[in-house]
Design a protein around this nucleic acid. Structure first.
Lengths: 212, 212, 212, 212
DNA sequence: AATGAATGAGCTTTCATTCAT
DNA sequence: TATGAATGAAAGCTCATTCAT
């Protein structure tokens, strides 16, 4: 009874809907079994459809996987853009909102994280994956840089090298995802967020209010 | 010291060497092709040996992969323990040494990083991988905690929550590895180190000398 | 002439036309891709219609292929019967006309030849194909025999064994088709005809006029 | 208990032997089922070996098929060169020997003929097949031309156009193969040979002795 | 009558594993 | 110990056929 499974039960569905359904099935399977053990049959089964369905809609497994990565990348971007838009027009608040968005239920969902790491694991040897992963960082990086620059100017912070700080924040964000994914004790989304906020407190001590 | 024990050591040594050779071949192949596209034949070929050789020494592919992960985990640990040992008996210096060791030529080698991410990518669905990855963090975490606690005490830092800082540092360290592995522009080991050191400067402003 | 019979003919006609259209599409595809690589989708596409159309009109691929072979067989027969009918009432002339008809634009068209050879290639293992191919030869053979017998009688040729000559002529005719189909240098219809005519000159030296 | 099946029963056979064995299995299967219905499993089974064996030795089905065609082409050529070599040094005798060789047990074997027609059927759309088929004709054609030229000179035949005669003979030879393959009543190798010899008698009436 | 999304059997191919040498 | 030919299960993909629309 999940909302996503609320699709036409069997035959005759719009192409876009079927594709989405299959991508979501792929995500489920990758999260459950890993990229290497995910087969076309698994995806079809997870979608409640027949063997040949994936090739019918995506032509090849490679293509399905690329589209799956694309899908979570766009979902990810939409999520943080939304977060900035909804935040008050204050650079510290926007920074907090942007970084907190990474620990949203939607994107820091353990299934999605598993998928990200699955693709990162293959990115070095797969140019297509690599490119999409790079794009995700580039866009995020630009927005983050803008906000931080404004915050530095407004807060009269000295001695902060923006590029390095941006690299550091993004690195920590990714590393916290890994921790959520892998840690033995329940290191959850809230913990991750707290760690990140403490980082910001150290860097921008005059704006701690926004980070607590 | 029976006559047979004269031979045993050599044979055992030979066996160990062959296993190491195959593990290194596995690393090469995983870095080149990813975990999913690495076959037993690739490993054997990279080692300059014949088809059946891997099964002879490791019984199964699964086992080879487990041992490979173990191998880089131990190499990693050896590396940072060494770094601490060689560092002067000063907590800030030791912290710097420990964190700098992550960007050593040996462990932050792009091939090794590729292997780490390959295994992380499958860790969620493979308990054996997950366990080894967790162990790596646990050990590192303990040493890191000790050093930071000492530094906080000595430096009379207040308002620093050690556990969160430790999580943050480790997260950033892993995230910087990802950046080295995936970034388009040449984000290298030195950059990563600089980012990390800047982080420490923010957290421990009184010890900046040790981090520059 | 009930009101319904007013409609029936049209509908029946439409059906026949569609079947013909699909058979011609099949011929095109077989010529282009061979029998083995021709799919129902190819045929439908070549006809500018939709996937399921062939099954609708022919029930199965096997059936379509049988009907396609039948179609070119009938076209072939119609062609040579026509040629005889139009020829002057003279046995040598009729012989020439019959054999020349094999190198007509219509039947010795390279697409049609490709189809013949495609079916011959499978005839040994497909009784239905074999039967249709045999029928083609049987009918042709009978007419050819009659004409030759008359010519031998009229021309007072001795030492000619009709059955063997008929076999020989038919064999050469088929072989010349192969040559048209496969030869590297442009061995065309006219060449084939000339070769056949020279054969007849050798066999019936007193009637060379009819063969030049 | 055929001589060819007299190979190492299972494991460990020389590569060349295995390849030959598989090619012969392919021939059997193509003759039995046609090119289109021959699967890798059929070939492996006919060779008494396991599924993966064909890919192990030929990499792909396409390659196996190409090599199979090559195999019968070389066997064919060897056969007629042998026939010429063994024939007395007399042009008529050599001509007879060359053409009779086409109806040898070895090459006019019904299985081999089925294979030839199977490949001819696909030759139009498969450049590799086409090329090999053309090569077969080219070589044969050259030898045939030489012998006929000598015979014409020695026999003082006039009005014979060698190129057309050569085309005619080759066409008839191929067509007779088709007849052997497809004819309903038992049109066998001897019949085919007789038809061809009668043709030669008509063309070279002064040398009928050599053709009877 | 026509469409085209869906099915699922069957194909080629890959590859971890086995084992005679 | 080491080799590499052989195996056979399992994968991705194709395509004739079905059937809701």
């Amino acid at each position: 009874m999940t909302p996503t499974s609320n699709l036409q039960p069997k035959r005759r569905a719009a192409k876009v809907i079927r594709r989405r359904q299959l991508i979501e099935a792929a995500i489920k399977s990758i999260a459950k079994r890993g990229l290497g053990d995910t087969t076309m049959a698994h995806v079809a089964q997870a979608a409640g459809l027949s063997q040949g369905i994936v090739n019918l809609h995506f032509d090849s497994k490679d293509n399905l996987l690329n589209e799956t990565l694309n899908y979570i990348r766009h979902e990810y971007e939409e999520n943080w853009r939304n977060a900035i838009d909804k935040a008050p027009n204050d650079s510290a608040q926007q920074l907090a909102a942007l970084l907190r968005s990474d620990y949203n239920k939607k994107v820091a969902d353990i299934q999605k994280l598993a998928v990200w790491f699955a693709f990162w694991g293959e990115a070095k040897s797969r140019p297509t994956y690599k490119k999409i992963c790079q794009e995700r960082v580039t866009d995020y990086s630009q927005s983050l840089t803008k906000i931080i620059d404004r915050l530095i100017k407004e807060g009269e912070y000295k001695y902060i090298k923006t590029p390095q700080l941006v690299e550091g924040i993004i690195a920590m964000a990714d590393g916290l995802w890994l921790n959520i994914l892998i840690s033995a004790q329940g290191f959850g989304r809230q913990n991750a967020e707290a760690v990140m906020m403490q980082y910001l407190c150290h860097v921008f001590p005059n704006h701690q209010a926004a980070f607590n």
